[in-house]
Amino acid sequence: MSLTRSRTPKDEAQRRGIAPEQRDPKKQKLSKAERKQMRRGGWLDAFSRQNLADTILTGYLPIFVALIVIVLPLAWMVSSSFKPPSEIVTLNPTLLPQDPTVDNFGNVVDRVPLLTMFGNSIYVTVVGSSIKVLLAVTTAYALVFIKVPGRNFIFLGILVALMVPPEVSMLPNYLTITGLGGRDTLWGIILPGLGTAFGTFLLRQHFMALPKEMFEAAELDGAGHFRKLFQIAAPVSIPAIATVGLVTVVNEWNSFLWPLVITGSAEKMTLPVGLNLLQSVETQAGSYGILMAGAVIVIAPMLIIFAALQKYIVAGLTQGSVK
C-alpha cells in the first residue's frame, strides 16, 4: 500500500466500490452488447463438446466437494436445531428433521437470558460500530485535510497501533476498566475497542485519492472543514465508509475474548459469551439440539448481512491484498 498521494485507476475503481475482477480496463471499452456476447460465449465454451469433460472434472466436481465441506456443517446446524432430542441421539441420523420442533429455541431461552444477551449484542455492535466509524471518518479527514505539523508522525503512531492485537492489551485494559467501574457493564465492553486504527487507515487512503478540485470549489464558497467533511468528503465516500462499517459490525458481533473477560453476570453478556456459558451447562448428548439452536442465533444474523452485502465485506476484509 503506497502511502504517498497517488491516483491510479485502481484507486479510482476502489473509490467507486468496484470489485477487483470488474476493473479490467480492456473490458470497459467494450459495449454492453459485446460484453454480453463475450460472457455468453464463455458460458457456451465451458459446455462445448471438447470442454465439457474438463469443465465437470476440474471445475464443478471440486467446487461441489468444496461446497459440501463448507455448507454441510451449517446445514447440519440448522437441521439439528429443529430436531427433538430423540433424533439427536439416534444412531441413524437423517439430514432433515423427521419431526421438526422449535422446542430447542425455547429451551435456550429457559437456560440463559437469551433475549437480553441478543439485545446486549445488538447494543454493543450498533453503538460500538457507529462511534468507531464516526471516529475513523473524522480522524482520517483530519490526517488528510487539516494541515498541522507532525500529522504524519501521528499517522505513524496509528499505524503501529494497527499491529497491536487487542489480546496483548487485555490484562491492563481489564485493570483500567475495572478501576473505572466498568466491570460487568455494556460500556465496559465497548470502550476499550473504540480507538480505531484499521478504519482510520483505510479511510485515509481513500480520502487522499479524492480529487482536490472538489474541495477547492467548496473553499471558494467559504465552506469550513465541517461542511467539507460532512457535505463533500463523507457523501462521496459512502462505499468506503460502508466497507469500514460492515467489517466493524462483523468484528463487534463476533468479539469474544474481551467480553468474556470483562463480564460476569449473564445479564451483561453478549451472545458469544452467553453461548459459551450455555455450552458449559448443557453437557448431555441430547442437548446438542439446544446448542445448535444457540449457534443458529449467533451465526444467522452475520450470514444474512454477509449474503446481502458481501461485496463490501469481502473488499474490506481482504484489504491490502490487491494492490
Partner: peptide, 19 residues
C-alpha cells in the same frame, strides 16, 4: 459461499463442530 465461514462467530462455529 466459500468465503462465508470467515465472517461467522468463532464460538458459534466451534459449537457446530463440537457436535
Amino acid at each position: 459461499a466459500v468465503f462465508s465461514p470467515y465472517v461467522l462467530s468463532g464460538v458459534g462455529v466451534a459449537m457446530v463442530w463440537n457436535f
